[in-house]
Design a protein around this nucleic acid. Structure first.
Lengths: 250, 250
DNA sequence: TTCGCAGTGTCGAGTTGTCGACAGTTTTTG
DNA sequence: CAAAAACTGTCGACAACTCGACACTGCGAA
């Protein structure tokens, strides 16, 4: 098991005042999850809150047809299930790991105890909720207006900034589901991005070759959502501060 | 000025315990707004909370291009700006009246005083936030998957259940903006719905002739969002609450 | 009344993405 | 090692929607 200090690689936890952090950290448990793990389905009661250290969790709206469309994502800048830190809640989405995930987990019940006594904690939860909401309403417009190519690029960038590597394990089939389009469409788009030298795609692995070039292809939504997170979750600078020299845990 | 008792035509206010209602009602001011009024734009600080008695307010995500896509709507079952009842907030959307609106207005500052002392009030705000969020993530999927015809029908029904009349003042141009499609597409769809006898469209006025028929054309999203509001805002549940199930762990 | 105009109807070329099918290639599994 | 599974590439017919253009029609204002 990892040492609790690793939990602080989560920007939400880093933003907590020391007193609250002290209440939470002892209860954190480090977990490592493989890609594709379903953490919650709609209607599930949220028993645990996950603070990712590295990796991406997709929030997907399930339709009767079985389609699952991504509405927002959770990474090291946020937490999964945080609304349950105020009162018991049911999940509204399917939450599934899109990449291998390192995270710290805590019982929602424990967080509720902290929230009950700490206005700062409570305020952080509210601002996080608002950031996720902002993410969702931007995606509403994105899905209505933007081309598959732009949304594809946006997704890659969002994922890329939440993992260390430039390589992302991802099948075109899965991505097609999340974007709500056909796999053949994804194939075609991936092809053109590859010939332009922006990415390299090989059997379930995308390699981001040119993030800046991708950003030019992506829609404004990428930057807009990023801006909301920065505004609402405290003035953390654009790149995570890197003072601690990563004492090779795990 | 109307008597405050009219405020209770709002289902959110009706759900308040008497003590909290007594703190709020004296500060409510009845307002009547024409259609097309912009109440908030993104970045505006939310000074007033509106509790609609009748009518619809659209929440629209603004894009750089000037496009404005509807992400959720607020009617007599909810409130506009309620997130500001906890702490000062900026609007994330453009909020605009889609129909003539009767509402009760109160300074967000007053509500913050009530929230500070009333857990019930605070809990109501949280559940409302979650209902609006559920609305938004359903719309994400809807915009990705469903035809213009289905979304059109869904919109009409959502609007219809929030106003008294079967007639809705609405130009095709405005609706096209909200759905994020061309006006010519809306014209074509409106035409087919009219020939099928579901609606009657005449110069800026839609008449809902056959709500049940419309519901058959609309996508599942209409019913899903409705269900969330019933569940979260404690309103009249459509079906008896289902027995708790599966502590089974995934 | 007449004019102006907002709102609607329609057309057609063009683009994007759907949908089913199937072939080829790499990885996994027995 | 062989077989199966998973993943990607490609094709073609088709449907949905875009985008620009223009004509028509009530309605309100001068």
């Amino acid at each position: 098991m990892q040492r609790p200090v690793s939990a602080l690689q989560n920007r939400l936890l880093e933003a907590l005042p020391p007193g609250d952090a002290a209440r939470i950290i002892p209860h954190l448990v480090a977990v490592t999850l493989e890609r594709g793990r379903v953490l919650y389905d709609p209607g599930d009661s949220v028993e645990f809150v996950y603070f990712p250290n590295e990796g991406v969790i997709s929030l997907m709206t399930l339709m009767e047809s079985g389609a699952a469309i991504e509405s927002a994502i959770i990474g090291p800048e946020g937490a999964l299930g945080l609304m349950a830190a105020v009162a018991p809640r049911q999940s509204l989405s399917r939450a599934v790991t899109q990449t291998p995930l390192r995270a710290s987990r805590i019982a929602a019940e424990r967080l509720r105890e902290v929230c009950a006594v700490s206005p700062a904690m409570r305020d952080l939860v509210d601002r996080h909720t608002e950031a996720v909401y902002a993410h969702a309403i931007q995606t509403v417009a994105c899905n209505a207006l933007h081309s598959v190519e732009a949304r594809f690029a946006r997704w890659l960038l969002s994922c890329h900034e939440r993992v260390q590597s430039s390589k992302i394990a991802l099948t075109q089939e899965l991505l097609a589901d999340m974007l709500g389009v056909q796999r053949t469409t994804v194939t075609a788009v991936a092809r053109t991005l590859q010939t332009r030298g922006l990415i390299r795609y090989r059997r379930g692995v995308v390699d981001i070759l040119d993030p800046d070039g991708l950003e030019a292809v992506a829609c404004e939504c990428y930057g807009v959502v990023r801006g909301h997170y920065h505004r609402l979750l405290g003035g953390t600078p654009k790149r995570p501060p890197r003072p601690r020299s990563d004492p090779a845990q795990r």
